[in-house]
Design a protein around this nucleic acid. Structure first.
Lengths: 175, 175
DNA sequence: TAGAATGTTTAGTATTTACTAAACGAATTA
DNA sequence: TAATTCGTTTAGTAAATACTAAACATTCTA
Protein backbone atom coordinates (compact mmCIF):
# COMPACT_ATOMS: atom_id res chain seq x y z
CA UNK A 1 0.00 0.00 0.00
CA UNK A 2 1.17 3.46 -0.84
CA UNK A 3 0.71 6.16 1.76
CA UNK A 4 0.18 9.83 1.08
CA UNK A 5 3.52 10.65 2.57
CA UNK A 6 5.26 8.09 0.39
CA UNK A 7 3.80 9.63 -2.72
CA UNK A 8 4.89 13.07 -1.58
CA UNK A 9 8.36 11.84 -0.65
CA UNK A 10 8.76 10.14 -3.99
CA UNK A 11 7.91 13.32 -5.81
CA UNK A 12 10.14 15.46 -3.63
CA UNK A 13 13.00 13.09 -4.26
CA UNK A 14 12.34 13.26 -7.97
CA UNK A 15 12.51 17.03 -7.89
CA UNK A 16 15.80 16.81 -6.00
CA UNK A 17 17.18 14.82 -8.87
CA UNK A 18 15.94 17.26 -11.47
CA UNK A 19 17.42 20.11 -9.52
CA UNK A 20 20.74 18.36 -9.35
CA UNK A 21 20.62 17.54 -13.05
CA UNK A 22 20.31 21.22 -13.83
CA UNK A 23 23.25 22.05 -11.61
CA UNK A 24 21.38 23.34 -8.59
CA UNK A 25 21.53 22.03 -5.02
CA UNK A 26 19.33 19.04 -4.33
CA UNK A 27 17.78 20.91 -1.45
CA UNK A 28 16.41 23.49 -3.83
CA UNK A 29 14.48 20.89 -5.74
CA UNK A 30 13.19 19.31 -2.56
CA UNK A 31 11.94 22.60 -1.20
CA UNK A 32 10.26 23.52 -4.43
CA UNK A 33 8.71 20.06 -4.62
CA UNK A 34 7.26 20.35 -1.16
CA UNK A 35 5.79 23.76 -1.90
CA UNK A 36 4.51 22.69 -5.27
CA UNK A 37 2.43 19.93 -3.74
CA UNK A 38 0.96 22.18 -1.12
CA UNK A 39 -2.30 23.99 -1.69
CA UNK A 40 -1.37 26.49 1.00
CA UNK A 41 1.85 28.39 1.62
CA UNK A 42 4.26 26.65 4.00
CA UNK A 43 6.32 28.10 6.80
CA UNK A 44 10.01 27.52 7.24
CA UNK A 45 9.33 25.01 10.00
CA UNK A 46 6.81 23.16 7.91
CA UNK A 47 9.42 22.93 5.20
CA UNK A 48 11.89 21.51 7.71
CA UNK A 49 9.32 18.87 8.51
CA UNK A 50 8.50 18.08 4.89
CA UNK A 51 12.01 17.91 3.53
CA UNK A 52 14.11 16.71 6.46
CA UNK A 53 16.54 19.58 5.93
CA UNK A 54 17.69 21.98 8.62
CA UNK A 55 16.49 25.52 9.11
CA UNK A 56 19.76 26.89 7.81
CA UNK A 57 19.59 24.99 4.56
CA UNK A 58 15.97 25.96 4.04
CA UNK A 59 16.74 29.57 4.78
CA UNK A 60 19.49 29.92 2.21
CA UNK A 61 17.83 27.89 -0.52
CA UNK A 62 14.53 29.62 -0.07
CA UNK A 63 16.34 32.87 -0.73
CA UNK A 64 17.81 31.76 -4.04
CA UNK A 65 14.53 30.15 -5.07
CA UNK A 66 12.84 33.47 -4.43
CA UNK A 67 15.47 35.31 -6.46
CA UNK A 68 14.80 32.90 -9.28
CA UNK A 69 11.12 33.58 -9.08
CA UNK A 70 10.35 29.90 -8.57
CA UNK A 71 8.67 30.53 -5.24
CA UNK A 72 7.21 33.60 -3.59
CA UNK A 73 7.21 34.77 0.01
CA UNK A 74 3.80 35.22 1.55
CA UNK A 75 3.47 37.33 4.65
CA UNK A 76 0.38 37.20 6.76
CA UNK A 77 -0.62 40.09 8.88
CA UNK A 78 -0.15 39.63 12.55
CA UNK A 79 2.00 36.58 11.88
CA UNK A 80 5.72 36.93 12.12
CA UNK A 81 6.38 33.72 10.24
CA UNK A 82 7.43 33.75 6.60
CA UNK A 83 5.42 31.55 4.32
CA UNK A 84 6.29 30.46 0.83
CA UNK A 85 4.29 29.25 -2.14
CA UNK A 86 5.38 27.82 -5.47
CA UNK A 87 5.12 29.82 -8.65
CA UNK A 88 2.92 27.85 -11.01
CA UNK A 89 3.68 29.90 -14.11
CA UNK A 90 6.98 28.36 -15.04
CA UNK A 91 7.53 30.58 -18.04
CA UNK A 92 7.55 33.52 -15.71
CA UNK A 93 10.27 31.83 -13.66
CA UNK A 94 12.35 31.02 -16.71
CA UNK A 95 12.17 34.66 -17.64
CA UNK A 96 13.42 35.72 -14.23
CA UNK A 97 16.22 33.17 -14.24
CA UNK A 98 17.46 34.12 -17.68
CA UNK A 99 17.35 37.80 -16.88
CA UNK A 100 19.48 37.26 -13.81
CA UNK A 101 22.03 35.06 -15.46
CA UNK A 102 22.41 37.38 -18.36
CA UNK A 103 23.38 40.44 -16.44
CA UNK A 104 25.82 38.79 -14.13
CA UNK A 105 28.36 36.39 -15.52
CA UNK A 106 27.37 35.85 -19.06
CA UNK A 107 28.21 39.34 -20.20
CA UNK A 108 31.54 39.14 -18.47
CA UNK A 109 32.27 35.94 -20.32
CA UNK A 110 31.33 37.33 -23.68
CA UNK A 111 33.43 40.34 -22.95
CA UNK A 112 36.60 38.32 -22.84
CA UNK A 113 36.02 37.34 -26.44
CA UNK A 114 35.34 40.91 -27.37
CA UNK A 115 38.58 42.01 -25.75
CA UNK A 116 40.67 39.48 -27.57
CA UNK A 117 39.07 40.49 -30.82
CA UNK A 118 39.77 44.14 -30.10
CA UNK A 119 43.44 43.40 -29.37
CA UNK A 120 43.78 41.71 -32.70
CA UNK A 121 42.00 44.38 -34.66
CA UNK A 122 44.13 47.02 -32.98
CA UNK A 123 47.14 45.34 -34.49
CA UNK A 124 48.53 44.01 -31.23
CA UNK A 125 50.81 41.00 -31.31
CA UNK A 126 53.13 40.18 -34.16
CA UNK A 127 50.99 37.88 -36.25
CA UNK A 128 51.55 37.85 -39.95
CA UNK A 129 48.74 39.11 -42.11
CA UNK A 130 47.26 35.74 -42.88
CA UNK A 131 47.21 34.47 -39.32
CA UNK A 132 45.73 37.67 -37.97
CA UNK A 133 42.95 37.45 -40.52
CA UNK A 134 42.30 33.85 -39.55
CA UNK A 135 42.07 34.64 -35.85
CA UNK A 136 39.82 37.62 -36.40
CA UNK A 137 37.52 35.54 -38.52
CA UNK A 138 37.22 32.84 -35.89
CA UNK A 139 36.62 35.26 -33.06
CA UNK A 140 33.98 37.07 -35.03
CA UNK A 141 32.18 33.81 -35.64
CA UNK A 142 32.29 33.04 -31.94
CA UNK A 143 30.95 36.43 -31.07
CA UNK A 144 28.13 36.01 -33.56
CA UNK A 145 27.24 32.79 -31.84
CA UNK A 146 27.16 34.42 -28.44
CA UNK A 147 25.04 37.20 -29.83
CA UNK A 148 22.63 34.61 -31.16
CA UNK A 149 22.38 32.99 -27.75
CA UNK A 150 21.76 36.41 -26.33
CA UNK A 151 18.93 36.87 -28.79
CA UNK A 152 17.43 33.51 -27.98
CA UNK A 153 17.43 34.18 -24.26
CA UNK A 154 15.86 37.56 -24.86
CA UNK A 155 13.30 35.87 -27.05
CA UNK A 156 12.47 33.32 -24.40
CA UNK A 157 12.14 36.12 -21.91
CA UNK A 158 9.54 37.57 -24.20
CA UNK A 159 7.57 34.35 -24.38
CA UNK A 160 5.85 35.13 -21.15
CA UNK A 161 4.38 38.38 -22.36
CA UNK A 162 3.12 36.74 -25.52
CA UNK A 163 0.16 34.43 -25.54
CA UNK A 164 0.81 30.73 -25.29
CA UNK A 165 -0.58 30.47 -28.82
CA UNK A 166 2.30 32.46 -30.21
CA UNK A 167 4.66 30.08 -28.51
CA UNK A 168 2.93 27.11 -30.03
CA UNK A 169 3.03 28.63 -33.49
CA UNK A 170 6.71 29.38 -33.20
CA UNK A 171 7.37 25.84 -32.17
CA UNK A 172 5.35 24.64 -35.10
CA UNK A 173 7.54 26.62 -37.49
CA UNK A 174 10.57 24.91 -36.10
CA UNK A 175 9.17 21.41 -36.07
CA UNK B 1 53.49 45.35 -25.68
CA UNK B 2 51.20 42.43 -26.20
CA UNK B 3 52.71 39.21 -27.44
CA UNK B 4 50.98 36.61 -29.55
CA UNK B 5 51.09 34.15 -26.73
CA UNK B 6 49.56 36.66 -24.34
CA UNK B 7 46.64 37.20 -26.67
CA UNK B 8 46.15 33.47 -27.00
CA UNK B 9 46.44 32.94 -23.25
CA UNK B 10 43.94 35.67 -22.58
CA UNK B 11 41.44 34.08 -24.90
CA UNK B 12 42.01 30.59 -23.53
CA UNK B 13 41.47 31.91 -20.03
CA UNK B 14 38.28 33.59 -21.14
CA UNK B 15 36.99 30.33 -22.57
CA UNK B 16 37.83 28.61 -19.29
CA UNK B 17 35.58 31.06 -17.55
CA UNK B 18 32.75 30.56 -19.99
CA UNK B 19 33.07 26.82 -19.62
CA UNK B 20 32.92 27.11 -15.88
CA UNK B 21 29.93 29.43 -16.08
CA UNK B 22 28.03 26.79 -18.00
CA UNK B 23 28.88 24.15 -15.45
CA UNK B 24 31.67 22.40 -17.30
CA UNK B 25 35.28 21.92 -16.18
CA UNK B 26 37.56 24.85 -16.84
CA UNK B 27 39.92 22.55 -18.68
CA UNK B 28 37.27 21.87 -21.28
CA UNK B 29 37.01 25.51 -22.16
CA UNK B 30 40.77 25.90 -22.27
CA UNK B 31 41.19 22.97 -24.62
CA UNK B 32 38.45 24.16 -26.90
CA UNK B 33 39.92 27.65 -26.87
CA UNK B 34 43.34 26.39 -27.89
CA UNK B 35 41.89 24.35 -30.72
CA UNK B 36 39.61 27.13 -31.83
CA UNK B 37 42.54 29.46 -32.35
CA UNK B 38 44.52 26.94 -34.31
CA UNK B 39 44.29 26.74 -38.07
CA UNK B 40 45.54 23.18 -37.98
CA UNK B 41 44.52 20.22 -35.80
CA UNK B 42 46.58 19.85 -32.63
CA UNK B 43 47.97 16.73 -31.04
CA UNK B 44 47.52 15.82 -27.42
CA UNK B 45 51.05 16.94 -26.63
CA UNK B 46 50.58 20.23 -28.39
CA UNK B 47 47.49 20.75 -26.26
CA UNK B 48 49.53 20.03 -23.15
CA UNK B 49 51.90 22.74 -24.27
CA UNK B 50 49.18 25.25 -25.12
CA UNK B 51 47.04 24.82 -22.04
CA UNK B 52 49.49 23.84 -19.32
CA UNK B 53 47.31 20.87 -18.37
CA UNK B 54 48.56 17.33 -18.03
CA UNK B 55 48.07 14.55 -20.52
CA UNK B 56 45.51 12.87 -18.31
CA UNK B 57 43.33 15.93 -18.05
CA UNK B 58 43.53 16.55 -21.77
CA UNK B 59 42.71 12.95 -22.49
CA UNK B 60 39.52 12.85 -20.46
CA UNK B 61 38.27 16.30 -21.45
CA UNK B 62 38.99 15.74 -25.09
CA UNK B 63 36.75 12.70 -24.89
CA UNK B 64 33.78 14.58 -23.53
CA UNK B 65 34.35 17.48 -25.92
CA UNK B 66 34.23 14.98 -28.74
CA UNK B 67 31.03 13.44 -27.40
CA UNK B 68 29.54 16.91 -27.34
CA UNK B 69 30.55 17.48 -30.92
CA UNK B 70 32.52 20.59 -30.01
CA UNK B 71 35.73 19.16 -31.38
CA UNK B 72 36.53 16.37 -33.78
CA UNK B 73 39.33 13.81 -33.83
CA UNK B 74 41.51 13.88 -36.89
CA UNK B 75 43.62 10.86 -37.69
CA UNK B 76 46.43 11.05 -40.16
CA UNK B 77 47.58 8.03 -42.00
CA UNK B 78 50.90 6.65 -40.92
CA UNK B 79 50.75 8.80 -37.80
CA UNK B 80 49.78 7.19 -34.56
CA UNK B 81 49.05 10.51 -32.88
CA UNK B 82 45.50 11.72 -32.39
CA UNK B 83 44.80 15.23 -33.56
CA UNK B 84 41.82 17.37 -32.77
CA UNK B 85 40.18 20.33 -34.40
CA UNK B 86 37.40 22.62 -33.23
CA UNK B 87 33.94 22.42 -34.69
CA UNK B 88 33.15 25.84 -36.10
CA UNK B 89 29.45 25.25 -36.66
CA UNK B 90 28.22 25.83 -33.15
CA UNK B 91 24.62 25.08 -33.99
CA UNK B 92 25.67 21.61 -34.92
CA UNK B 93 27.32 21.22 -31.52
CA UNK B 94 24.28 22.51 -29.69
CA UNK B 95 22.25 19.94 -31.52
CA UNK B 96 24.56 17.15 -30.45
CA UNK B 97 24.65 18.31 -26.85
CA UNK B 98 20.90 18.60 -26.56
CA UNK B 99 20.39 15.22 -28.16
CA UNK B 100 22.73 13.61 -25.65
CA UNK B 101 21.27 15.29 -22.62
CA UNK B 102 17.77 14.42 -23.61
CA UNK B 103 18.23 10.71 -23.79
CA UNK B 104 20.25 10.30 -20.64
CA UNK B 105 19.16 12.04 -17.48
CA UNK B 106 16.43 14.32 -18.53
CA UNK B 107 13.98 11.60 -19.39
CA UNK B 108 14.70 9.89 -16.12
CA UNK B 109 13.91 13.09 -14.31
CA UNK B 110 10.68 13.65 -16.14
CA UNK B 111 9.74 10.09 -15.45
CA UNK B 112 9.64 10.66 -11.74
CA UNK B 113 6.89 13.18 -12.27
CA UNK B 114 5.05 10.81 -14.52
CA UNK B 115 5.25 8.07 -11.90
CA UNK B 116 3.88 10.24 -9.15
CA UNK B 117 1.06 11.32 -11.40
CA UNK B 118 0.28 7.72 -12.25
CA UNK B 119 0.17 6.76 -8.58
CA UNK B 120 -2.34 9.46 -7.92
CA UNK B 121 -4.51 8.67 -10.88
CA UNK B 122 -4.50 5.01 -9.93
CA UNK B 123 -6.13 6.01 -6.70
CA UNK B 124 -3.15 5.24 -4.48
CA UNK B 125 -2.85 7.00 -1.18
CA UNK B 126 -5.78 8.12 0.93
CA UNK B 127 -6.29 11.66 -0.24
CA UNK B 128 -9.75 13.07 -0.16
CA UNK B 129 -11.32 13.88 -3.49
CA UNK B 130 -10.47 17.54 -3.43
CA UNK B 131 -6.83 17.11 -2.50
CA UNK B 132 -6.28 14.39 -5.05
CA UNK B 133 -7.73 16.61 -7.76
CA UNK B 134 -5.46 19.43 -6.68
CA UNK B 135 -2.34 17.28 -6.78
CA UNK B 136 -3.21 15.80 -10.14
CA UNK B 137 -3.77 19.25 -11.56
CA UNK B 138 -0.40 20.50 -10.36
CA UNK B 139 1.50 17.49 -11.59
CA UNK B 140 -0.15 17.72 -14.98
CA UNK B 141 0.90 21.35 -15.24
CA UNK B 142 4.45 20.40 -14.39
CA UNK B 143 4.47 17.66 -16.97
CA UNK B 144 3.15 20.05 -19.59
CA UNK B 145 6.04 22.35 -18.80
CA UNK B 146 8.56 19.57 -19.19
CA UNK B 147 6.97 18.57 -22.45
CA UNK B 148 7.29 22.15 -23.62
CA UNK B 149 10.98 22.15 -22.77
CA UNK B 150 11.25 18.92 -24.66
CA UNK B 151 9.67 20.58 -27.68
CA UNK B 152 11.95 23.57 -27.45
CA UNK B 153 15.07 21.43 -27.34
CA UNK B 154 13.82 19.42 -30.27
CA UNK B 155 13.14 22.65 -32.09
CA UNK B 156 16.61 23.97 -31.39
CA UNK B 157 18.00 20.70 -32.58
CA UNK B 158 16.25 21.39 -35.83
CA UNK B 159 17.81 24.81 -36.20
CA UNK B 160 20.84 23.35 -37.85
CA UNK B 161 18.92 21.83 -40.72
CA UNK B 162 17.01 25.01 -41.31
CA UNK B 163 18.58 27.95 -43.04
CA UNK B 164 19.87 30.72 -40.86
CA UNK B 165 17.18 32.91 -42.42
CA UNK B 166 14.46 30.86 -40.84
CA UNK B 167 16.16 31.26 -37.51
CA UNK B 168 16.40 34.99 -37.94
CA UNK B 169 12.76 35.27 -38.87
CA UNK B 170 11.69 33.27 -35.86
CA UNK B 171 13.76 35.47 -33.62
CA UNK B 172 12.19 38.50 -35.22
CA UNK B 173 8.73 37.21 -34.34
CA UNK B 174 9.75 36.99 -30.76
CA UNK B 175 11.50 40.34 -30.53
C1' DT C 1 12.67 44.60 30.16
C1' DA C 2 12.82 39.47 30.21
C1' DG C 3 11.71 35.75 27.55
C1' DA C 4 10.06 33.39 23.49
C1' DA C 5 9.68 32.78 18.64
C1' DT C 6 11.62 33.19 14.24
C1' DG C 7 15.04 33.72 10.62
C1' DT C 8 20.10 34.39 9.45
C1' DT C 9 24.85 33.71 9.77
C1' DT C 10 28.85 31.19 10.92
C1' DA C 11 31.95 27.42 11.78
C1' DG C 12 32.80 22.96 10.79
C1' DT C 13 32.25 18.70 7.98
C1' DA C 14 31.36 15.42 4.47
C1' DT C 15 30.95 14.88 -0.30
C1' DT C 16 31.92 15.76 -4.83
C1' DT C 17 34.78 17.37 -8.44
C1' DA C 18 38.60 18.26 -11.31
C1' DC C 19 42.97 18.03 -11.54
C1' DT C 20 48.18 16.02 -11.22
C1' DA C 21 51.51 12.46 -11.24
C1' DA C 22 52.60 8.21 -12.42
C1' DA C 23 51.62 3.50 -13.55
C1' DC C 24 49.85 0.96 -17.16
C1' DG C 25 48.65 -0.87 -21.78
C1' DA C 26 48.78 -1.10 -26.57
C1' DA C 27 50.93 -0.53 -30.80
C1' DT C 28 55.10 0.39 -33.59
C1' DT C 29 59.80 -0.02 -34.74
C1' DA C 30 64.48 -1.72 -34.30
C1' DT D 1 61.80 -9.48 -28.25
C1' DA D 2 63.36 -5.03 -26.43
C1' DA D 3 62.77 -0.30 -26.60
C1' DT D 4 59.87 3.76 -27.81
C1' DT D 5 55.95 6.32 -28.44
C1' DC D 6 51.41 7.34 -27.56
C1' DG D 7 46.97 7.43 -25.04
C1' DT D 8 44.28 5.79 -20.95
C1' DT D 9 43.48 4.67 -16.37
C1' DT D 10 44.24 4.94 -11.55
C1' DA D 11 45.47 6.68 -7.05
C1' DG D 12 45.90 10.53 -4.55
C1' DT D 13 44.99 15.55 -3.58
C1' DA D 14 43.33 20.18 -3.41
C1' DA D 15 39.46 22.98 -3.79
C1' DA D 16 34.66 23.88 -4.12
C1' DT D 17 30.08 22.87 -2.59
C1' DA D 18 26.18 21.94 0.15
C1' DC D 19 24.81 20.66 4.10
C1' DT D 20 24.34 20.39 9.68
C1' DA D 21 24.54 22.23 14.17
C1' DA D 22 24.62 25.91 16.88
C1' DA D 23 25.38 30.69 17.91
C1' DC D 24 23.42 34.97 16.93
C1' DA D 25 20.21 38.90 15.83
C1' DT D 26 15.75 40.67 15.61
C1' DT D 27 11.15 41.23 16.61
C1' DC D 28 7.20 40.39 19.19
C1' DT D 29 4.83 39.38 23.67
C1' DA D 30 4.19 38.99 28.58
Amino acid sequence: MTTNSQIRQNFIQGMSGISQFWGFPKAMGAIFGALYLSATPLSLDELVENTGLTKGAISTNVRTLTRMGLIHPVTRMADRKDYYEAETDFYKSVQTILKGRQNNEFDRAINSVKETLASLEAGEGSFDKKERAFLIERLKALQDFFDAIDNVTRAISKLNSLGINTVQSVIKILK
